[in-house]
Design a protein around this nucleic acid. Structure first.
Lengths: 210, 210
DNA sequence: CATGGTACTGACCGAATGGTCGGTCGGTCA
DNA sequence: TGACCGACCGACCATTCGGTCAGTACCATG
């Protein structure tokens, strides 16, 4: 039995990692001091340096965990949905929801992806490329099935979908304050409207209606 | 004649503001020290405090200038372009280009917009809302002219266009490293493909081809 | 010439920073 | 039992932080 009085049975190391994830995600590398970290993890500052050689090393470890966490969950996309429109809608909603429910790792990775982090770009890079790959395949499958135009670049579709998801996630507070855009704070509503736009386009057409 | 030996005839105050813009945009509020600022502006640290009451006050001033700079240039959108498709393409290209050519203020404003700044959200908020308003009008005009579907929400179109622009801007280094997405680093190419997707949609249609 | 105001500086301050050190404690294994 | 080890801590260190202050140089107006 260790000395921890109540609850919080996690190892000190785990608490450090958790605190790092939460604080670095919320305030950025420079916005968090080792003293903050130690207090949040209920650990002595010296103990953090016992587990990690430097603040940089801790940040790197936190980032690595965030990446691992993300990568594991990426594989579970449902491929068996028959209708293409709902497959796209499902992906967008799922992606959008995941950003929010894993807010801390998302923020951390985005910072790296945007090159504003302490520059460990390769990691975030991998995660992003992976999620894009999934979308490429989805679109290409739609093209092979003859449901999607052959002359649209799958990359534009993929880029568009995740861009809107990411932007909506990051700008949520602002969007909520603009009545016309408030819908974007609801992931399902966003998925519905966005996939409709991307699939059907904004121009009027001569023929049918979906 | 002041003591400045060569070139750099700008006032000290202006140099401070410029340094603040550049450094805060690149490293964030916490990532920049007053000593860094002073060195970059070729001014004594005490002089900065002579012009601005605190680091916060300087940051606020820098942010205000960035906003002003942005707002002035926003009004010059060409409304006389007859064809709708090229109007959209023009807007996207122009917007995307402007983010890049005004990189520092853009980064500063985005940080605020994403709520990761020192929380002065109202300012960035205004700028964003304004650019969205322009797009709303563009789309609504298209709808009145019968060129755009009446049942698409102008807000989704607007959100989509700026989302992709912003994401492409922020993630440029990453995008360049992914062959399929490298096109997004070229603003004109991005404008072309994005506006095609948003206007025409990805689904195959029975009738014509654009 | 005095006077006063503004731009500007070097030297300095207490607090906070990332990081170190000597040492305690509880367990493991020979 | 005793040697050893990793987890852990309080106290401490040099440096840097944002900010202050007394004073100088310069220019305008009386």
């Amino acid at each position: 039995m260790n000395g921890m009085s109540e609850s919080d049975e996690r190892s000190a190391n785990q608490r450090i990692l958790d605190a790092g994830l939460r604080l670095f995600a919320a305030h950025g590398y420079d916005g968090v001091s080792m003293t903050d970290l130690a207090a949040d993890a209920q650990v002595s500052k010296a103990n953090i340096f016992h587990h990690y050689a430097s603040k940089d090393a801790l940040y790197a470890a936190v980032l690595k965990h965030a990446v691992a966490d993300f990568a594991t969950r990426l594989a579970q996309l449902n491929r068996d949905e028959p209708e293409l429109a709902s497959r796209v809608r499902t992906f967008v909603g799922w992606h959008s929801r995941r950003l929010r429910e894993r807010e801390a790792p998302t923020r951390l990775l985005l910072r790296e992806l945007f090159g504003q982090g302490v520059s460990r770009p390769e990691l975030a890079h991998e995660v992003f490329a992976e999620s894009q790959r999934h979308l490429f395949e989805l679109v290409e499958a739609g093209q092979r099935a003859g449901q999607l135009r052959a002359d649209v670049d799958p990359a534009v579709v993929a880029l568009t979908l995740v861009s809107v998801d990411v932007f909506s996630f990051l700008a949520t507070p602002t969007l909520r304050a603009i009545p016309q855009l408030a819908f974007a704070a609801d992931q399902d509503e966003l998925a519905r409207r966005l996939s409709d736009l991307v699939l059907n386009g904004a121009l009027v057409r001569r023929g049918e209606r979906t």
